[in-house]
Amino acid sequence: MMAKTGIEVPTLQNTGIDKEHIKVQLDYHQENNKLNIALKEKWLETLFSANFLVFLVTIFVIASGFVYMCVDGVMKTDIVEYWKLILPVVTTYIGYAIGKGKVG
Rank of each mutant, 00 (worst) to 15 (best):
residue 50 A to P: 07
residue 53 L to N: 14
residue 83 W to H: 09
residue 55 F to P: 01
residue 35 L to D: 00
residue 41 E to P: 00
residue 55 F to N: 14
residue 45 E to F: 05
residue 65 G to V: 00
residue 42 K to Q: 12
residue 56 L to C: 07
residue 75 M to K: 07
residue 57 V to T: 08
residue 34 K to M: 06
residue 55 F to H: 12
residue 75 M to S: 12
residue 48 F to M: 12
residue 42 K to V: 07
residue 63 A to P: 00
residue 65 G to S: 07
residue 63 A to E: 04
residue 64 S to A: 14
residue 82 Y to Q: 12
residue 38 A to V: 01
residue 68 Y to V: 04
residue 68 Y to N: 09
residue 76 K to I: 09
residue 74 V to I: 13
residue 36 N to H: 02
residue 60 F to K: 14
residue 69 M to K: 15
residue 63 A to T: 03
residue 40 K to D: 12
residue 50 A to G: 12
residue 80 V to P: 01
residue 57 V to Y: 06
residue 73 G to T: 06
residue 37 I to A: 03
residue 37 I to R: 03
residue 73 G to S: 09
residue 46 T to F: 14
residue 84 K to P: 00
residue 38 A to I: 01
residue 81 E to P: 00
residue 62 I to N: 02
residue 42 K to M: 12
residue 54 V to S: 09
residue 64 S to F: 08
residue 52 F to I: 09
residue 70 C to R: 15
residue 42 K to D: 09
residue 79 I to G: 05
residue 79 I to V: 15
residue 68 Y to S: 08
residue 79 I to W: 05
residue 63 A to S: 09
residue 34 K to Y: 06
residue 81 E to R: 08
residue 38 A to M: 04
residue 64 S to G: 04
residue 77 T to F: 07
residue 53 L to Y: 07
residue 69 M to H: 14
residue 78 D to F: 09
residue 84 K to H: 06
residue 34 K to V: 05
residue 83 W to F: 12
residue 76 K to H: 06
residue 36 N to C: 02
residue 52 F to C: 04
residue 82 Y to G: 13
residue 64 S to I: 10
residue 70 C to D: 13
residue 84 K to W: 02
residue 47 L to Q: 05
residue 76 K to Y: 11
residue 43 W to M: 13
residue 40 K to A: 12
residue 85 L to V: 03
residue 34 K to A: 07
residue 58 T to R: 05
residue 40 K to L: 09
residue 58 T to D: 11
residue 49 S to N: 10
residue 74 V to A: 07
residue 37 I to Y: 02
residue 46 T to D: 14
residue 52 F to L: 13
residue 48 F to Y: 15
residue 63 A to F: 12
residue 73 G to M: 09
residue 51 N to M: 14
residue 73 G to E: 10
residue 70 C to G: 13
residue 38 A to S: 02
